[in-house]
Write a protein that binds this DNA or RNA. Structure first.
Lengths: 270, 270
DNA sequence: CGCGACGTTGACCTACCTCAATTGGCGTGG
DNA sequence: CCACGCCAATTGAGGTAGGTCAACGTCGCG
């Protein structure tokens, strides 16, 4: 269930036209590893993946680097930068990638005109946060084998959808070095771990493809539970975001203080 | 710069009254470790910390547990649950804590009435995401000493504000076991690490307090850079969230397709 | 006074890291 | 079409940060 299918399902045809026109205005190509946004910069534009994958990462002063998220075609990478004076992370191409850059005014105008699009991206931002939490468990609690298996499961499911027939394949653009940066392991140890997965359930990794002949086996190793991806909830999720965007001067609940009330705050928080 | 001060600065007095009235409607007390929301449950209410700390966590089938975030008084713990059919994480008291539970209808009504409050919490959700990213670097890249030092720095700064006079103290409600669950280490190793920090820069931890006689030293060990907390940007940040909430039927940009246009989508995304 | 929760210590172990060299595939230029 | 060079994957040997297990100390509280 690739993200762009979700978008197609959630946008009206009219919205889709506006959205794609917006994307078409300014597309950029990046080479492998090239930075699109660097930590500390003032963000000027929003980035939407058109083709290839994009990585969000952060690095320590001494060069250690952690990949924080992977974005696939259709995904908006940095809604958060909309609201922040200087970026607290970097964005780079995983390998050759094409990315639409949307200027702030264009984005504002579009979102203002299509509240539904705003809601879709707010919702997808929440899903991205859920994915981050799942990565935190990997980094903090899972062993190397589980970590790598879990990453493969996630990437597979994000492209092919949840309950899958065994044996299938999908794109896979990360090098073993990048897997290492995403999982907090060493490139060498990732290599050994991948070999172990090959041995145990026939996973094939290479030539930019991932083949999974035994998804059940792989997801058992990973203790993979796809709920956190919130598939199948997209429509309902977006609807539930809606209340945040409605404004009305309604009474909040019975006995509620009115705006005229200028009583001192209760000082509840201690 | 505790979160509740930020709230006070950003809300109008009128909003503050409404907000606190909302909090006052239903306050609950929890004991140490008691769950407020369990993974997989359908979330019914939003939780705002009144006193004590709250932890967001997730656990693996075999019981390994990762603390994902710590919430302090004034913070809304689970805006994301607003939009989700079943929670993908759990919420529990770090130790005895008092928490306001806001029903969905109340929350909708309040947010509808005070868009500014919605914006404040959307912004704070973005900051929470930034904190999560910083934790990911800890989990993936930092050594034990750096990890624990970084956690202490964060907790200290979140309570006392950014540039601090050396020597100060603050609340500290985590046990060493909980520090271990947050940092992905072992309780035993956390103990040894804390002792090392005591030796190196005189940190004192105990009796629910954290004393930091040499913050500069501690933050050097941690390579702590407080930018990710986005202090001092709260007001501007909230203003920048605003465009997401404005609706208008404006032309998006020159040459933009109109709603009448029902041309097929461009098929840009590949 | 006794119990339970936290913190502390020691001995031993292993999952993963480091360093370093080698192999294989692929795109490019001759 | 081949040769070169680059990038990614692989292999080996040896080291260490941090884990495991188990016991003991200490503080606060009922």
């Amino acid at each position: 269930m690739p993200f762009r299918e979700i978008l197609n399902r959630l946008m009206t045809p009219g919205e889709r036209v506006l959205w794609e026109a917006c994307l078409a205005r300014n597309a950029c190509d990046y080479r492998k590893g090239e930075d699109m946004v660097r930590e500390g910069e003032h963000p000027r534009v929003l980035h939407v993946v058109l083709s290839g994958w994009v990585q969000k990462y952060k690095e320590l002063p001494d060069g250690r680097r952690q990949i924080l998220a992977i974005y696939m075609p259709g995904q908006l990478c940095d809604l958060d930068l909309f609201t922040v004076a200087r970026s607290d992370h970097s964005l780079a191409a995983v390998r050759a990638a094409s990315v639409a850059e949307i200027s702030r005014p264009d984005a504002c105008a579009l979102l203002r005109r299509c509240p539904n699009i705003t809601q879709i991206f707010c919702w997808s931002e929440l899903v991205a946060a859920a994915v981050q939490r799942e990565w935190m468990i990997s980094l903090g609690q899972r062993h190397a084998l589980e970590r790598v298996a879990h990453l493969l499961c996630e990437i597979y499911v994000r492209q092919r959808g949840a309950p899958n027939p065994d044996d299938g394949e999908c794109d896979f653009f990360l090098t073993q070095w990048q897997i290492a940066e995403a999982t907090g392991l060493t490139q060498v140890h990732v290599n050994r771990t991948v070999q172990e997965l090959r041995r145990r359930c026939g996973v094939e990794l290479g030539r930019l493809r991932l083949r999974v002949p035994d998804f059940a086996g792989l997801s058992t190793i990973a203790a993979f539970n796809p709920n956190y991806l919130h598939f199948g909830e997209a429509g309902a999720g977006v609807d539930r975001v809606a209340p945040l965007f409605e404004t009305a001067d309604v009474p909040v609940f019975a006995g509620f203080p009115t705006d005229g009330d200028r009583a001192a705050p209760l000082g509840l928080l201690s």
